[in-house]
């Protein structure tokens, strides 16, 4: 079992103990809110992990390597960004898929671009964003986010 999860669980439990002493009502509200988001997210998790299993079994690493490997350079950045832009889902869903890509031989900057575009670019939420903030803002923000994903990917290559 991964110790990180256990350590983090203990940390969160301590935080709850602290807030419980200050305000039991709000702490239990927090717990209720947390479990509600969790149940809301559960189908996504099931689907994402199901996909991860399929990816790791059926997609040959050679394919990932060719499309997103370091030797493909700019192409792999574009592929990563495009995948993240098309895919929608909560941020937490991006990490398992990103880990699979990385394991399959994908270039770290391309994987970073994938995560960032997954999180920042939302084609599904675009109509709502346009309604709330106006079409100009929504289109510009999503467009710049696509560019930002690639920039962050390149910078990741420099940092790592």
């Amino acid at each position: 079992m991964d110790p990180t999860g256990i350590i983090y669980l203990i940390g969160v439990a301590l935080a709850y103990a602290f807030f419980w002493r200050r305000s039991p009502g709000r702490a239990s509200k927090a717990l209720a809110g947390g479990s509600k988001s969790f149940t809301g997210m559960l189908p996504t998790f099931i689907a994402v992990f199901g996909l991860v299993g399929l990816f790791e079994t059926f997609i040959p690493p050679a394919l990932i390597e060719r499309l997103m490997g370091s030797s493909s350079g700019a192409l792999s950045l574009l592929v990563g960004t495009a995948l993240g832009t098309v895919a929608t889902g909560p941020p937490a869903g991006a990490y398992p898929i990103a880990a699979t890509l990385l394991k399959g031989g994908a270039w770290a900057p391309a994987v970073a671009a994938f995560i960032v575009s997954w999180i920042l670019v939302g084609f599904v939420s675009l109509p709502m964003e346009s309604r709330v903030f106006g079409v100009k803002f929504a289109v510009l923000r999503n467009g710049i986010s696509i560019l930002a994903s690639m920039v962050i990917g390149v910078l990741m290559g420099v940092v790592l």
């Binding site: 935080a15 717990l31 809110g33 997210m41």
Partner: peptide
């Protein structure tokens, strides 16, 4: 475990 902890933490932040 991390997922459960993360959502519990998100609940705290939210409230």
């Amino acid at each position: 475990p991390i997922i459960v902890a993360v959502f519990a933490a998100l609940g705290l932040v939210q409230v």
